[in-house]
Computed example of a mutant assay.
Amino acid sequence: MNVRQTPEFPAWPQYDETEREGLVRALEQGQWWRMGGSEVESFEREFADHHGAAHALAVTNGTHALELALQCMGVGPGTEVVVPAFTFISSSQAAQRLGAVAVPVDVDEDTYSIDVAATAAAVTPRTRVIMPVHMAGFMADMDALAKLSADTGVPLLQDAAHAHGARWRGRRVGELGSVAAFSFQNGKLMTAGEGGAVLFPDTEMYETAFLRHSCGRPRTDRRYLHEIAGSNLRLNEFSAAVLRAQLGRLEQQVTTRQRRWALLSGLLGAIDGVVPQRGDERTDFPSHYMAMFRVPGIGEEQRNALVDRLVEAGVPAFAGFRAIYRTDAFWEIGAPDETPDEVAERCPRTEAISRDCVWLHHRVLLAAEQAQHETAAIVADAVAAI
């Protein structure tokens, strides 16, 4: 491979005095948990407002956000949740840990998000929730999914772990009429190291979720009168203070990523054998959690070698998600009555994408335009060396 200029990428996470001031503010208020402080409640209001939702509930992490949302939507033993086969495994494990069966379906070959026709074919009388994942910040087909939900009576839970600030036909995630879950894990578009949030369109479900995330205990309880079963999923005040600062720069960062992806995707698409992820045009404000592309036809071993070459050249590259049904963890509990090969047979696009997909960390898209050209040149060299 030719020697190339190593691109300069900004560090992630990013922070400035705003986070520092928030941490001091949380420290000096004298109460460091949500029941006595004000940072978590302030963050919840600000996050809900930013996403057009009636309510937001901050929780310990994104996986717990999904699990809590599913529980409040009636998921449990004897029920099924339809999930995309190409996703991080939390999407399925959140349902499985509640005793439900996770049913993987294939994804769209362009957006890598859940395929609507495959989803419709998977709905049964036991299906309690359909979970689209907005892969890399390009939203799933929310129009078709909303119609499917209305036709079947099965509600949607948006896994929006990649979609902070994204919009579908001008509507924000919280304006689409369904529950949505977010992650603030260290690599996400806004982060406090860990953390999560759930957006609720109605007050009744939000109040139920509040009880469940706080051991079933009402806000003003002083006598341990736990009303329903729950767990301790409360976010702490320090994390919330950091997230308030992170939210303040989200819009500007997403706008920068959009501009850089418009450049980088064109450069990648000009490389022989490389196919960049394409978003549905109705995602008119994608958040670009990842810069994803495929090299169709290569195998998993070649793809992994490609990733290694990119990393060696200074590009923060990663292998695409493994199909969830190709992991041992998926089959431990709450798996469908099928073999991995039987699931794979109805998920051909997932099989292919899982073998040949590469993603670049979103900090690549926060770098200067010159870095996009340098990145594409490194990718071209690495692909040619396969």
Rank of each mutant, 00 (worst) to 15 (best):
Q277L: 14
E204K: 11
V275D: 05
E251I: 03
S265W: 08
S231I: 05
V275W: 07
G248R: 08
P276R: 06
R222S: 13
F238M: 09
L264H: 11
P201Q: 06
V242Q: 04
A262Q: 11
L263K: 08
F210Y: 14
R278I: 04
L250Y: 07
L250K: 11
L268G: 06
R244C: 01
T255Q: 09
T208N: 13
L225F: 10
A245M: 11
R223E: 14
L225N: 15
L225A: 12
R234N: 12
R278G: 06
W261G: 06
V275E: 12
L235Y: 00
V242G: 01
L199T: 05
N232G: 12
I271F: 05
G196K: 09
E251T: 14
L267H: 03
F210W: 15
T220G: 15
T255N: 09
R222F: 09
V275S: 10
R219S: 10
L233S: 10
L267N: 04
Q252L: 05
G216V: 12
E204D: 14
H226G: 03
P201N: 05
G196Y: 13
S239P: 00
L264S: 09
A209D: 09
G273W: 06
D202V: 03
L211M: 11
H213M: 12
P276M: 01
S231Q: 10
L268H: 12
R212S: 03
V242S: 03
R259G: 10
A270D: 12
R259M: 04
R278V: 11
Q253K: 05
R259Y: 02
F238R: 04
R217Q: 06
A270N: 10
R260N: 11
A241R: 01
S265N: 04
C215L: 13
T208Q: 15
N236M: 06
R217G: 02
L250W: 07
R219P: 02
A245N: 07
L225R: 15
T208D: 13
W261A: 07
Q252E: 14
T256Q: 15
H226K: 12
A245E: 03
L263E: 09
Y206N: 04
L264K: 08
V274T: 05
D202T: 11
E204R: 10
Q277M: 14
F210V: 13
G266Q: 10
R223T: 15
I228Q: 04
H213G: 14
A197K: 07
F210L: 13
L250S: 13
M205F: 04
L268W: 11
T203W: 00
R222G: 02
G273D: 06
L243I: 04
V242D: 00
D272P: 01
E251V: 10
R234V: 12
R259P: 00
V254W: 01
T256P: 01
R222N: 08
L267P: 05
E227D: 07
D221G: 05
H213L: 01
L243M: 10
V275H: 13
E227C: 10
E207Y: 05
L268F: 14
R278M: 08
E207T: 13
M205T: 15
G195W: 00
G216P: 13
G216Y: 14
D272L: 04
T255P: 00
N232A: 10
S265C: 03
T220L: 15
Q246D: 12
E227M: 14
P218F: 07
L233T: 02
T255F: 03
R260L: 06
A270H: 04
T220N: 14
V198W: 02
G216L: 12
G230Q: 12
